[in-house]
Nucleic acid binder design. Structure first.
Lengths: 242, 242
DNA sequence: TCGGAAAAAATTGTATACAGAAAATCCTAA
DNA sequence: TTAGGATTTTCTGTATACAATTTTTTCCGA
């Protein structure tokens, strides 16, 4: 089961995790040689990985050469979350319009049951399970419409860690009534799946957008109440919007 | 004014234009050495350019190594056009909600006048002018909301040449009442700008989506009426959806 | 003539060398 | 002491060499 990793894969995984660790979140240029040595590979595949991370938006090019960790304002993150909701909403609408293959629907129902289980776990909510199952549901949503284009774009948007639905989940436990928020989110999941199953495109789209707006309001609350969140955001420099 | 191009820039521009020329639209693997020689550069920057084009979606990786020109079904293109409309619609809505800086609005008004001029040119519609001004308008739309995230995503979606609003414009002259279609599109432009100026977010979004749907229906008409279009699609293998 | 194995050729993935440019350091002069 | 400039150092961008695969060709046997 363990596929042999190419040097490029090593570079990509290693570099991404280093960037997300937050260690290099200053505005300094990232040294190719330093990272290549640290990851035990040559500069060539490391450079490829840097290019990739620039394309993902995690890094940004410097005019004079090289690149640095990207910085985002809370407004940027908010936009990314909302846009993700819009695109997922489109996926939901298309899925409803076109109909979804039975097996996928069955998978979705099962995943939603798993989320219910995580919410009702003895000893409080099982966060890890919730996060995983939630990510699974959103991935299924992206596959419902059977559109490679749509799927690709949604996947791309999930790459900005802060825009993905499960980002911050651990931070979010600081939110009052957070558990209620999760329960509410799950009710939205069921409503979305219901709308899609019933071929109600407009409703499926609206519900999915609304679902993203919940994540958005949680994020907004966090950044307003806890400005120091910036320090805990995994790896990306979060810059105060003036 | 002529900025010195890096080898990578040469590779990117050259390779993209070669791919779009359609010469390599078979399913064969693109040889790195061949292209490097043809463009007069070494394999390193060419390889970077290939990576970039893969990220853009113009090329796709081959499991055993290397990459080839990507293929799209008409359904894929249709999805891309629709999705572009959705994201542009979001930009329009956000612009209306947030308000747009005066200078940008003035630019937009001017561009729309240029389009009117292109439509009323003596000796028939000035297509080149229309295409250029139209692209300009859509670029302004992407900048209206003052959101780097949104702008980036819209730009990215314009990279798939077939999804961009002006793609096919020359082909589309084969459409009956095509000139009327352009006039209608321009009326939509004005309506969109009007909605944004009046801060009517929902209307701005709906109108922008509708605008994309016009392009979509033109594309659909073309592929249905002229299956041989595939041969004339610049550079991308268009595969019949079964 | 056809199928398949073996050898040959070509191609990719990776490492590394090198030149030119940017950045850091240090020295000098006000 | 500090500003400015020259020098040194470091770094990126690019070319190229090399090894491991993959693909093609060749050749033999059925």
């Amino acid at each position: 089961m363990s596929e042999r990793l190419s040097q490029f894969d090593k570079a990509l995984l290693g570099l991404r995790s280093l960037v997300l660790s937050g260690e290099f979140t200053g505005q300094r240029r990232l040294s190719e040689v330093a990272f290549a040595e640290r990851l035990g590979i040559s500069r060539t595949p490391l450079r490829q990985a840097m290019d990739r991370l620039v394309a993902e938006g995690l890094l940004e090019r410097i005019e004079t050469g090289g690149c640095r960790v990207a910085t985002f304002t809370p407004d940027d993150i908010a936009d990314a979350i909302e846009l993700r909701g819009v695109v997922e909403g489109t996926a939901a609408r298309m899925a409803a319009e076109r109909g979804v293959a039975e097996p996928l629907l069955a998978d979705a129902a099962e995943v939603l049951d798993r989320i219910d289980g995580a919410l009702r776990a003895s000893g409080g909510v099982d966060f890890d399970e919730y996060i995983q199952a939630n990510a699974w549901f959103h991935d299924l949503l992206a596959r419902f419409a059977d559109s490679p284009i749509l799927r690709r774009e949604i996947e791309r948007m999930s790459l900005l860690p802060l825009a993905s639905p499960s980002a911050f989940l651990s931070e979010q436990s600081a939110i009052p009534d957070f558990q209620d928020s999760l329960t509410y989110a799950q009710r939205q999941h069921r409503a979305i799946l219901d709308a899609i199953t019933n071929r109600e495109g407009a409703r499926a789209e609206a519900l999915t957008r609304e679902h993203a707006r919940l994540a958005l309001s949680n994020f907004t609350y966090l950044t307003e109440q806890q400005p120091m969140l910036a320090k805990r955001v995994p790896g990306l420099a979060l810059v105060a919007s003036e």
